[in-house]
């Protein structure tokens, strides 16, 4: 196991927490700006990793991310007007690999949603590829694997 500079872990943690906070506050325009132009946001189903050729919950390039956010915001989607409220924590952060300006990180994500007076709990492993940019990071790839991604889910009116 390679030793990771404590400063890197601190910086990465701060970035992931900032993103989590942005998503809980549904500040989606700010979220879109966190991405590289060719970044991919993927929520797969099951354990397969051939994401381009398998069915996922979502496989979003920049256009799909923008359209998704547009859908959330326009007010015509009944499931997201209003959406469920969410509170999430990102923890158990592990910096896996650093090469050039890319850093691979994985973390645990716990999310509780609330709508119609009922709460649902979701857990998953999140895999990030971060790209150094200026003094901070951009999201280059984010893959969230729900624990029960191949089981019976509910519909989601927010992002993980």
């Amino acid at each position: 196991m390679t030793m990771v500079d404590a400063n890197v872990l601190t910086d990465v943690t701060e970035f992931l927490w900032k993103e989590a906070d942005i998503l809980d506050r549904k500040d989606y325009d700010t979220w879109l700006d966190l991405w590289t132009d060719d970044g991919l946001y993927i929520m797969p189903i099951g354990d397969g990793e051939d994401y381009a050729d398998q069915l996922n919950l979502c496989y979003d390039n920049a256009k799909m991310r923008k359209d998704r956010v547009g859908r959330f915001k326009a007010g015509f989607s009944i499931s997201s007007a209003p959406p469920a409220r969410t509170v999430r924590t990102i923890s158990r952060i592990v910096v896996e690999e650093m090469s050039g300006d890319l850093i691979k990180v994985r973390a645990a994500e716990h999310l509780v949603e609330d709508k119609f007076g009922r709460q649902r709990v979701w857990a998953g492993d999140a895999y990030y590829t971060l790209k150094r940019s200026g003094g901070g990071f951009l999201l280059h790839q984010k893959i969230v694997k729900l624990l029960n991604s191949d089981g019976m889910l509910n519909s989601f009116s927010y992002l993980f």
């Binding site: 069915l55 799909m64 499931s79």
Partner: peptide, 19 residues
């Protein structure tokens, strides 16, 4: 597959509104 993901399922642009 991409067309299916666009509309269908828990994160589609259609199914959540149906649900």
């Amino acid at each position: 597959i991409r067309l299916h993901e666009h509309f269908q399922g828990p994160m589609g642009f259609g199914s959540p509104d149906d649900a």
